[in-house]
Simulated assay, not measured.
Amino acid sequence: MTVPKTGILVLDSSDPEPLARFYAALLGGTVEPAPGDPDLLLVPSPTGIALAIHRDHGQAPPSWPRPEDSQQAHLRILVAPEALDEAEREAISLGARPVAAELNGTRLDRRSDVRRCTDPAGHPFVIAASPGVSR
């Protein structure tokens, strides 16, 4: 018999409260304290995205998108194809920074259905068009 499990993506941050508010606003969710852990904030969203922000005083932002580095992990936010530009503008208005992976001045990813960003603490995420998502 398999033990019941659930999962959550946890991002480290030296200042978790503003980052949790950023993702709550971006995902239409809320910020809630984690029971029994004062260094963890939960960011549940109505679409089922499970995200948490953990206080880590020594956290350093990832170096992505350098071609020689891997993203390691990233959050992929799915939107209706016709809402991609609007979703990107919303993320940037909340404090996201758009990024483009380049090597010797040549853009590595020319896909028009994915927008690469970092959150205010430097964690990578993408906003991706998905035909299965409706407005």
Rank of each mutant, 00 (worst) to 15 (best):
I49F: 02
I49Y: 03
L51T: 04
L51I: 06
L51S: 02
L51E: 02
A52G: 08
I53C: 01
H54Q: 13
H54S: 07
H54I: 02
D56C: 07
D56W: 08
D56N: 12
D56H: 09
D56R: 04
H57N: 12
H57W: 13
G58T: 15
Q59R: 14
Q59P: 08
Q59S: 09
A60F: 15
A60C: 14
P61H: 08
P61F: 11
P61I: 05
P61E: 07
P61D: 08
P61L: 08
P62C: 07
P62D: 07
P62F: 11
P62H: 04
S63V: 15
S63Y: 15
S63M: 11
W64R: 03
P65K: 00
P65N: 03
P65T: 02
R66W: 13
P67Y: 04
P67N: 07
E68D: 14
E68A: 09
E68G: 13
S70F: 15
S70C: 12
Q71V: 10
Q71P: 14
Q72V: 15
A73R: 11
A73F: 15
H74W: 07
H74S: 05
R76I: 08
I77W: 00
I77H: 00
I77M: 02
I77K: 01
L78S: 05
L78P: 01
L78A: 09
V79F: 03
A80Y: 04
A80L: 03
A80V: 02
P81E: 07
E82K: 05
E82M: 06
E82C: 08
A83G: 10
A83E: 11
A83F: 06
L84T: 02
L84H: 06
L84E: 02
D85A: 12
D85E: 09
D85T: 15
E86D: 13
E86A: 12
E86W: 06
A87N: 04
A87M: 05
R89I: 11
R89Y: 09
E90W: 12
A91I: 03
A91N: 04
I92W: 05
S93G: 15
S93W: 03
S93F: 06
S93M: 14
S93Y: 10
L94Y: 05
L94E: 09
G95A: 05
G95Y: 00
A96G: 02
A96E: 01
R97T: 14
R97M: 09
R97V: 14
R97L: 13
P98S: 00
P98N: 01
P98K: 00
V99A: 01
A100W: 01
A101K: 04
A101S: 11
A101I: 07
E102Q: 09
L103E: 13
N104K: 14
N104H: 15
N104L: 13
N104M: 13
G105V: 03
G105Q: 03
G105A: 04
G105P: 02
T106I: 13
T106Y: 10
R107H: 11
L108H: 07
L108V: 04
D109P: 00
D109E: 12
R110Y: 01
R110K: 13
R111M: 09
S112G: 13
S112P: 05
D113F: 07
D113A: 05
C117I: 01
T118S: 05
T118Q: 07
T118V: 14
T118F: 06
T118L: 06
D119Q: 06
D119K: 00
D119F: 02
